[in-house]
Computed example of a mutant assay.
Amino acid sequence: MHLILWRHAEAEDGRDDLARALTARGQHEAQRSAAWLKDQLRERPVRVLASQARRAQQTALAFTPQFGIDPRLNPDVPAASYLAAAGWPHADTAVLLVGHQPTLGWLASLLLAGTELDWDVRKSGVWWLEYHPGGGMQARLDAVYAPS
């Protein structure tokens, strides 16, 4: 299974966290990351899920208009929530999750190092993981992309 973690791009400040929209810079970053993802995925089937936050949905939209919205990817959820949404490690297609810090960093460290650490996934950054059989939740890091 391929699990692709994509942090939403730069967003406006605001009190209603789920309503915050991408800035102009964020839209540009999302387009750059989406172009890289499209090039890497080419004709590989992928299921795309975004949180209920507007900024995550706008980021996903840069890649495809066909994405699901899943509250298990909302801000401030545990890493296990993202794993459940993705169907890790048994999904039959690649899964692209558009979500938030610090959960994305916790998830990447859990799958790569075996424990949740405060790893930084930059805005509009992509971490591409692949399930590596051998017990537990082991993964291999295939690629990291940052639009800057």
Rank of each mutant, 00 (worst) to 15 (best):
W88Y: 00
H28R: 05
W119A: 12
V98L: 06
L112I: 09
A146V: 11
V126R: 04
D39E: 15
S124E: 05
L49P: 03
R15Y: 08
P89A: 06
H100A: 10
A60S: 07
Y131P: 09
L41K: 08
D17H: 07
L22V: 10
Q52K: 10
P45W: 15
D142C: 06
A60T: 07
R54I: 04
Q66Y: 13
L61K: 10
G114N: 14
W127V: 15
R42E: 15
E116Y: 11
Q27L: 01
H100C: 05
T103C: 02
A108F: 00
Q57D: 13
L104H: 04
Y82M: 03
L129C: 11
G26D: 06
V98Q: 01
A60Q: 00
R44Y: 08
R122L: 14
M137P: 07
D76I: 12
A53W: 02
L37G: 00
L49W: 00
G99W: 08
V144R: 08
H2V: 11
G114V: 13
D118Q: 14
K123S: 13
D17F: 02
G14H: 02
Q52L: 11
V95G: 05
R15C: 05
V126N: 10
R55L: 08
A62V: 06
A79I: 00
G134T: 06
M1G: 04
G136F: 12
G135H: 11
Q138A: 12
L96K: 06
E12F: 07
L129H: 01
A53N: 09
P78V: 13
W128A: 10
A146R: 06
L97I: 10
L96G: 04
T115R: 14
T115Q: 14
D142Y: 07
